[in-house]
Design a protein around this nucleic acid. Structure first.
Length: 859
RNA sequence: GCCCGGGUGGCGGAAUAGGUAGACGCGCAGGACUUAAAAUCCUGUUGCCUGUAAAGGCAGUAUCGGUUCGAUUCCGAUCUCGGGCACCA
């Protein structure tokens, strides 16, 4: 009987399903003291294209770990679900008039079938779908918790809005406005990325993806819902330290959060009125080198301070800026532009008069939207000053130039714009901070500015609040209503979920509102508390909403009372290993961390961080070495691979291609190699004529040499799975070496074979189950104990000693282990080839490393 | 421009508390089995040179230099590929 992978794989997939082999026990069924392991995959968006080999690569890695941990005695959580809200289903609905829910179900069915065909050890009873009413209910519930919370700066955590202390003396309306201004979800007129083709706004993070697809994105001011993620900037940054994440992802998040420490400084505007402009700077020590002030064109002060004679130019400039998208603003910026407002400001440290300009290289959204121009020590300011002929002053010198003969030359070069020094050094021409190192100068000048009430230290982040609304149909509606008096109110929890209507048209409204705005029957509602007329909020949430917390719902998927019980959450969280694509490094992973921290603040979860260990799988390239794409026709379909070679071969090959994080090309030839390996395993153990065990398998005790190799293999495979590097390629190569060795034997102990099959089983579970059964066992191999290795058996009797002369290898010799240094050296010096190379030369010294090498140094 | 990560045979990739470079697989070449092919099995496979052979020599981990008895591994400079950020003051 040949290795009939199709038959074997179907048989065991059915067995696993019938016997609920991978069912994770309920919390009260778990024996006390048993260790848990939570192996999580980034759940897929079920697209119409079906699963691709990139999905299966990451999922295979997680599955290997999950299966291994079960064998190791852990109670394992290994679930799967669907991130099913999303644009493709909606666009399909616009085209066909079929409700996205229906299309989504079709796609899910396809994905589910495919995932099952790979043999992943998933507990399918925990399957979740972000578009289910039950799931949407809890996403909306969480939104309400966020909406009804504020950030307590003193306690540094979110708290329920009821705890907010409202200042005395406010009238009803002011109270309402005050509370709204503190909510962690708020509506605001903000510049957004509007995509006319899609009829929706996009988050900054989403823009590049859609632009790549050929959609245009423009900048436009719109009222949008925002989440105050910026309140969590510091915690999101600090808590990265405790995570076992790839360094580059931590770095990416760090850059994204973009913390800068510096100061805000007030400059008085030279008029008879008391107006000040505030700037943010990381280098307040350069304040004596300021030669002008620049405001962002949108800065609220611009209109107020502009002189009549400059007004025309300023207005023109603002108009031109408005037309530019962010992208253009950045790109065109190679040549800096700007105009004078005619106004000037006073430098608080020396009374200097400074012209005020506007320029689009200053961004309203960062810092205070205004900067102090220090052209001697900032590249951008330098470029600007040279273009506009503004004065350049040297106020910092590098340590090595300070107080040397080169100082004057350096000053000259700064003044004429030849060089710009943005590093730290020593302050000069700087009044009270002369002679101080930059860091000291910074603290001293800040103290001084504080003392005269003209500035204070300040920390700024690049991270912006999260624009949380989308003008789409296929997303979670906001559980909010608009009353006739214009007020916004959250609906009561008992009314959740607010689900999407059954309609026939999904086209954008054209007004910039969500398609939901088209359906009066859905929009018009009644405030359940007062019975008054109200309209539903028609925006929907972004796709990230559902993926912010799905890993929690798996733990307690059927709970009607809460999204996940606190006790269950405590047992299973945090996630022990989370595998997915690097493209989610800043989007999904920062949003989920934020969301989880918020739930933590409000007492709904037990930990500070959700994902203890993160790993990014690399992409699988096409056979031609470039990214797989339909247009190139180099897409590999897992269905075909499984049909032709089996799921076990595919799993094995995807792990054998190389380290998990690397981008690697697919190779059908390579896949065949792994298929060949499995055939070798099969034929080694099974007699192809009878289907019974091969006659070379004996009940005798294992032979010593092969037993030693087995234990070496156990050690390697165990460590490769456990160490977290996800280098399964080397584990598999050891399994191959072992099989190659077995092929040289004419008798193999059954014990050896059984342990080997256990080692193979996480990688190639179907064939392993089948062989395990044919070896006479009942029940799944998943229930067996993982083999342990015996350290004593790892000790080698012989080692190869290398003999070198002057570092060049001249001979090698097999020698008994642990030979003393003297006998190693004697052996080396007596070696024919060594002698040849030291002949006629003087031996200077001999360097010997026990069990490794002898190096004879000669002159 | 800035930050991060890489450059090892024909290919995917092994091996770094400095100590046998190229494990394992693919491909290729030769052989066995077969009428033949496929499948399978065995042998070889970094390059160059000497040698019938056994064997030996030289070079070699992007390039150049350094430290060392010894460097793919450590240090410096350069080239190059990939990813991220990109006026963040």
């Amino acid at each position: 009987m040949k290795y009939d992978f199709t038959h074997i794989e179907k048989k065991w997939q059915k067995y696993w399903e019938d016997n609920k082999t991978f069912k994770t026990p309920d919390i009260n069924e778990i024996e006390p003291g048993r260790e848990k392991y939570y192996a999580l995959d980034m759940f897929p968006y079920p697209s119409g294209d079906g699963l691709h080999v990139g999905h299966t690569e990451g999922y295979t890695a997680t599955d290997i770990i999950a299966r291994f941990k079960r064998n190791k005695g852990y109670v394992v959580m290994h679930p799967m679900g669907w991130d099913a809200f999303g644009l493709p289903a909606e666009q399909y609905a616009v085209k066909t008039g079929i409700h996205p829910k229906i299309r989504t179900e079709e796609c899910i069915a396809q994905f589910r079938r495919q995932l099952k065909s790979v043999g992943f050890s998933i507990d399918w009873e925990r399957e979740i779908n972000t578009t289910d009413k039950d799931y949407v209910k809890w996403t909306q519930w969480m939104f309400l918790k966020i909406y009804n919370s504020f950030y307590d700066e003193k306690e540094d955590k979110a708290r329920p809005i009821e705890d907010l202390i409202i200042p005395e003396g406010l009238n009803e309306n002011e109270k309402y406005e005050y509370v709204n201004s503190k909510r962690l979800a708020y509506i605001a007129e903000v510049p957004v990325n509007w995509c006319p083709d899609l009829g929706t706004v996009l988050s900054n993070e989403e823009v590049p993806e859609q632009v790549e697809k050929g959609y245009t994105v423009v900048r436009r001011n719109m009222k949008q819902w925002n989440l105050r993620i910026t309140k969590y900037a510091e915690r999101l940054l600090n808590d990265l330290n405790e995570l076992d994440w790839p360094g580059n992802v931590k770095e990416l998040q760090k850059n994204w959060i973009g913390k800068s420490e510096g100061a805000v400084v007030k400059f008085k505007i030279k008029t008879d009125k008391e107006i000040y402009v505030e700037v943010f700077t990381t280098r307040p020590d350069t304040i004596y080198g300021v030669s002008y002030i620049i405001l962002a064109p949108e800065h609220p002060l611009v209109n107020e301070i502009t002189l009549d004679k400059n007004r025309h130019d300023v207005d023109e400039y603002i108009k031109a800026t408005e037309k530019k998208s962010d992208l253009e603003r950045a790109e065109l910026s190679k040549v800096k532009t700007g105009v004078f407002t005619g106004a000037s400001a006073i430098n608080p440290v020396n009374g200097e008069e400074l012209p005020i300009l506007i320029s689009d290289y200053v961004l309203l959204t960062y810092g205070t939207g205004a900067i102090m121009g220090v052209p001697g020590h900032d590249e951008r300011d330098n470029e600007f000053a040279r273009k506009f002929g503004l004065k350049i002053l040297p106020v910092v010198v590098p340590d090595e130039i300070y107080n040397t003969d080169n100082e004057e030359e350096f000053f000259g070069k700064i003044r004429n714009g030849e060089i710009c020094f943005s590093g730290k050094g020593i302050s000069v021409n700087s009044g009270i901070i002369n002679g101080l190192k930059s860091d000291e100068a910074i603290s001293k000048i800040i103290s001084y500015l504080e003392s005269i009430n003209y500035g204070k230290s300040s920390i700024r982040y690049k991270l912006r609040d999260w624009i949380f609304s989308r003008q789409r149909f296929w997303g979670e509606p906001f559980p909010l209503i608009h009353l006739e008096d214009g007020r916004i109110k959250s609906i009561t929890e008992s009314e959740l979920p607010v689900y999407l209507p059954e309609v026939e048209s999904y086209k954008p409204s054209g007004t910039g509102e969500s398609p939901l705005a088209n359906f009066d029957f859905w929009v018009n509602t009644i405030d359940s508390e007062t019975g008054k007329k109200a309209e539903r909020e028609t925006n929907t949430m972004p796709q990230w909403a559902g993926s912010c917390w799905y890993y929690l719902r798996y733990l307690d998927p059927k709970n009607k009372n809460t999204f996940c019980s606190l006790e269950i959450e405590k047992f299973w969280m945090p996630v022990d290993v989370y595998i997915g694509g690097v493209e989610h490094s800043v989007l999904h992973l920062i949003y989920s961390r934020f969301w989880y921290k918020l739930l933590y603040d409000l007492g709904y979860v037990n930990y500070k961080e959700p994902f203890r260990k993160l790993f990014n799988q690399g992409i699988v390239l096409g056979e031609d070495g470039v990214k797989m794409s339909k247009s190139r026709g180099n897409v590999i379909n897992p269905d075909n691979v499984i049909k032709n070679f089996g799921a076990d071969s595919m799993r094995l090959f995807e792990m054998f291609m190389g380290p998990l994080e690397a981008a690697k090309p697919w190779s059908t030839k390579g896949l065949e190699g792994l298929y060949r390996f499995l055939n070798r395993v099969w034929r080694l153990i099974i007699d192809e004529n009878t289907g019974k065990l091969n006659s070379i398998i004996s009940e005798e005790k294992p032979e010593e040499q092969i037993n030693k190799l087995l234990h070496k293999t156990i050690k390697k495979v165990t460590e490769d799975i456990e160490d977290g590097d996800m280098k399964f390629n080397t584990a598999i190569s050891y399994l191959m070496i072992f099989v190659n060795e077995l092929y040289k034997k004419d008798k193999i102990s059954r014990e050896i074979i059984e342990k080997f099959i256990l080692l193979l089983s996480p990688f190639a579970p179907h064939i392993s189950e089948e062989i395990w059964e044919r070896l006479g066992h009942r029940g799944s191999i998943q229930l067996e104990k993982w083999p342990e290795y015996n350290n004593e058996l790892l000790i080698q009797d012989f080692v190869t000693i290398v003999f070198q002369v002057n570092g060049k290898i001249r001979a090698k010799k097999e020698m008994e282990i642990d030979k003393d240094i003297k006998s190693l050296e004697d052996e080396a010096l007596n070696n024919e080839n060594v002698m040849k190379h030291i002949l006629g030369k003087q031996v200077v010294k001999i360097i010997t490393v026990k069990n490794k090498m002898v190096n004879v140094v000669v002159k």
